[in-house]
Amino acid sequence: MKTIMKLALAIALVLSFTNAEAAVTLNGAGATFPYPVYSAWAFDYNKITGVQLNYQSIGSGGGQRQITERTVDFGASDDPLKPEQLQKDKLLQFPAVIGGVVPVANVENVQPGQMKLDSDTLCKIFLGEIKSWSDESIRKMNPGLKLPQGEITVVYRSDGSGTTAIFTHYLAETCPAWKDKVGAGKAVKFPVGIGGKGNEGVANYVKRTPNSIGYVEFAYAKQNKLDYTQLKNKAGNFVVPGFESFEDAAESGDFDPKKDFYLWLTNAPGKGSWPIAGATFILLAKEKADVNKNIVKFFDWAFKNGDNKAKELTYVPLPKSLKDKIRAYWKANGLQ
């Protein structure tokens, strides 16, 4: 009996020591979209450094609120906060990873990537003004395709999401009618169509409904082999969604450290840019210098070593030029 007691005591002691050593725990909360890549990075980082990173994917709105109230060490958000807002709440902000949104359609006899659309037709489809795939404006862009007569069903996200925010931001930026009638946001009042819950909900309805169109995260479209479309970008070229076109968008996007990187990456000007992309952001509390240093260490490590992991999970790593800008921003704010 005594030996068992001793053994238990010894184990307890060892455990308490290891705990004391791994005392650095970073708590973050926010956007659901980057959750898989953050947790993959955190897992690898923990193996190397022993630093524990807990990330709770409670949604971007929640992330913003939690960091504003200082209940977490860092917040994460799919939509950037404006510099004035950051100033007011004493926050710092930088992008961490890029994602894209792609329109997916279910049109008979059309293979993934075959259909070409531009912002005007996409906008009119989602406004309910273009009702059929054989509409003249679509036929003109796709002379080689045999397009069906049936009525288009629009599928949108029924839950509030960063995906909707990026998508509606793109429509509002490129299409004045959308801006007037609907606007941009995580949840908007869609004039036509049906709502699916989550990427899986939208994908499921698009797959099942002939002549439908919806929008999902690129990662989701790729993993589920959905029929994505090409889009005409700002430079006037039709582009296929993929790592290259997202990276091009990220490189041509004007992320300005002076504005705390506030930027919607929609309608990027690069020649090969995919027009519906967006960065997801990290928010830090200005006064928590020590904690911030640890968080910055983590992201610095991730920027150096995490690109492959991110690509594996179909996220687009930040281009090198942007990473350098972020490192300069950290230095300027005394975080590195």
Partner: peptide
């Protein structure tokens, strides 16, 4: 509530 609470900004 279930759909919109998490992202109500």
């Amino acid at each position: 509530l279930a759909n919109e609470f998490a992202e109500a900004d």
